[in-house]
Write a protein that binds this DNA or RNA. Structure first.
Lengths: 111, 111
DNA sequence: TATATTTATCGTAATATTGCAATATAGTAT
DNA sequence: ATACTATATTGCAATATTACGATAAATATA
């Protein structure tokens, strides 16, 4: 069938899964890391940085933009992309709330 | 083509993407949350908890097991699953290291 | 031994993702 | 207007993921 049964899960579960999906490709990780390390907002010379075709980069940027992790503004002929701090923190907290749920008590190994 | 060009990216980027992929499905989030909240290790009455078929649950469990986030030990006729604390913390740090990379300086909005 | 019970695996269908060439769109400059 | 540059979109092929029925494997119980 190939279609996720979203109605079986909570809103939070579906949202976290959707956020995780954006991180589930090394190109998008690389794009985010590039945006982090470059102080100025950066456009599609990601094509140079990563070895992917322009169309492919554009597609990854759209996925990042669709979930709201990055935003872009037209800067002359090119587009300036950057991380959206608000969404960034929001997603960060979604993840850390999941991770924090497991209390790593020493020797609590059950199997 | 549909195949990820892993060789274009760093080992760390590929690893984080692979970890994220495991979180990129609400059923696996739900399984992890169930394992977190249940103090005792739990087997496949996840079939009851989630509304998915037994074969589907088993498949999700395998993906979680393959990356090392959970481990299972045979307990009579059933299998006892639980979170692997070591891997859990490892993945947690992989994520938080990415998130921490972006310094949310007030008003640093560039676009 | 025969019979449940529990979990894993196989096979398959439906859908999603990845990647790119080709093309479209939009701004800039000549 | 024409040419150039940067980015987005479309269409398509290759591959991956999701889900489940059917079946296998392993253990317990009568």
């Amino acid at each position: 069938m190939g279609v996720t049964k979203s109605d079986l899960f909570t809103e939070k579960q579906n949202e976290l899964a959707k956020a995780a999906k954006v991180f589930a490709h090394p190109a998008r990780i690389a794009i985010l890391e590039y945006l982090i390390q470059s102080t100025t907002c950066i456009n599609g010379d990601l094509v140079q940085e990563l070895g992917l075709a322009q169309a492919t980069i554009s597609q990854h940027l759209r996925e990042l933009k669709e979930i709201g992790l990055i935003k872009g503004s037209i800067e002359g002929v090119s587009v300036c992309y950057c991380i959206d701090p608000t969404k960034w923190v929001e997603v960060q907290q979604q993840f850390s709330s999941l991770f924090a749920g497991f209390p790593k008590i020493a020797g609590k190994d059950c199997c």
